[in-house]
Design a protein around this nucleic acid. Structure first.
Lengths: 252, 252
DNA sequence: CGCACCGTTGAGTTACATCAACCGTGGTGG
DNA sequence: CCACCACGGTTGATGTAACTCAACGGTGCG
């Protein structure tokens, strides 16, 4: 019921969509200069602090937007308080659904977040005028669906150890994508989550997550450092602990 | 790798999209007569028998389509054979993703299925010409995403009893939607799944599913009849066993 | 008839949750 | 400045929900 009390970060000096770091990953990917100009005309930037609520399940939401930086977690909560994270939105991902005014999940900023937002009405108008936008949204949506289904397999069938390994691989893979030489090196990750939040994501208790971390440490696969740091000592070994197929040739 | 060996049911006497029973629920919902004519020009019907494989994870898929009748299950399988159902497609739902040529799940007909299909290339051409089609796809996709996330909550956090109750409520709710008087009456359901398949969907072993059925029977909530039948004796009680919120006013 | 398939039920095991204690760190206020 | 506390993490003891293994019954089919 409560709409998020977000502060507008008026001073966000993003000059043009053309220079946006997330353009190629976002719904704007296949828009040309003219379409970007129209989007620029209606966009606004909004920033959220870590742990700040963006929207609550059941809220009427009058905006949608692309995550520019930071991570947003989507969660669902049962009446008795049991909680399940249902998505991690990363830069380039889209928050909200056109033509859906009511939220079906809670959205919380896990880190500092900057969002490039659009109010619903003008966005839907543009959507009717710019077919490329619809295509971008459809692609985002398909990707989310793939991710959700992958996660269903994890939640329904994987062991605690496989869950934690899969969780770490998500972040490790991202780092490898940036620089493939990390495949053979140790790599340090800064996880934006506490053990409890990882548990919410993995369908585990925080104690079980903690125990799996120390088990993976004892097996020489990872090295937890401080509250939120981890060093991946052996990417291949970690990957083999996920229970998944080999990494689609990434290791070749 | 193996493409489904589906037989064309050449004799499917569906004359016009205008009379299609699934039109209002499908991606064609907001298409006008002229758009429907163009879709008719490239559509084809294909039917599948119960348990027939439609496509396999990793397949290159050159078609998409709308389920006209029957149910299609999407599953994911781990290398060691663990299996998780990730979606139940019902009449009106869309199978496949435009612009995605590779399947990320297995699709199997759970019942006899009739699909209104389109080969990828002509469909994507039409998609560029008919914005209403994109909107329909986006809406389908959003619905699927909602369903997937609801299921993530179930898989990650619900007990076996809550899972089975939630499963039954899906089918019961559909029946109630058709005829609200069923809310107060007993209703008979024909489940298109074996205990093992329900287990695959719910992230449970088949034995646990079976035990929950008898527990719900002993509590006077349902009455299993034969292999695939169930009578819901007390809808409200069943609903309260799902662990979810009250049924959004359905009971009012 | 015999076999395959599905469902049920029981006995024993186990992976994970729960409950609880303890530690280190960082922030706050007396 | 330091005492205190809140918070996050780890670890241990214990409980239990669900899995596994196994036997058995009903039904339909070749």
């Amino acid at each position: 019921m409560v709409t998020a009390t977000a502060r507008n970060s008026g001073c966000h000096a993003q000059a043009s969509c053309l220079t946006c770091s997330e353009r190629s990953r976002s719904i704007c990917a296949s828009c040309g200069p003219e379409e970007l100009r129209q989007l620029e005309a209606i966009r606004f930037f909004r920033s959220y602090e870590p742990r700040q609520t963006i929207l609550l399940d059941g809220d009427m939401v009058d905006f949608v937007g692309t995550i520019i930086s930071g991570m947003v977690s989507l969660t669902k909560i049962m009446p008795d308080g049991r909680i399940q994270m249902v998505a991690m939105l990363r830069p380039g991902n889209f928050l909200g659904h056109p033509y859906r005014t009511q939220a079906s999940y809670n959205a919380v900023a896990s880190t500092s977040v900057v969002m490039c937002g659009f109010r619903r009405q003008p966005f839907e108008n543009l959507l009717r005028k710019i077919p490329e936008l619809g295509q971008g949204l459809l692609e985002q949506s398909s990707k989310e669906l793939d991710a959700a289904r992958e996660w269903m397999l994890l939640l329904g069938r994987k062991t605690a150890r496989e869950k934690v390994a899969s969780f770490l691989i998500i972040f490790a893979r991202e780092k490898v994508a940036q620089d493939p030489s990390f495949l053979k090196k140790q790599m340090h990750l800064d996880l934006p989550y506490t053990r409890a939040e990882m548990g919410d994501y993995l369908g585990l208790s925080l104690e079980t997550v903690s125990r799996q971390f120390t088990a993976l440490r004892d097996d020489g696969i990872v090295d937890p450092q401080g509250k939120r740091g981890v060093t991946i000592l052996n990417y291949a070994a970690l990957l083999s602990e996920t229970g998944d197929d080999a990494d689609g040739g990434w290791l070749a």
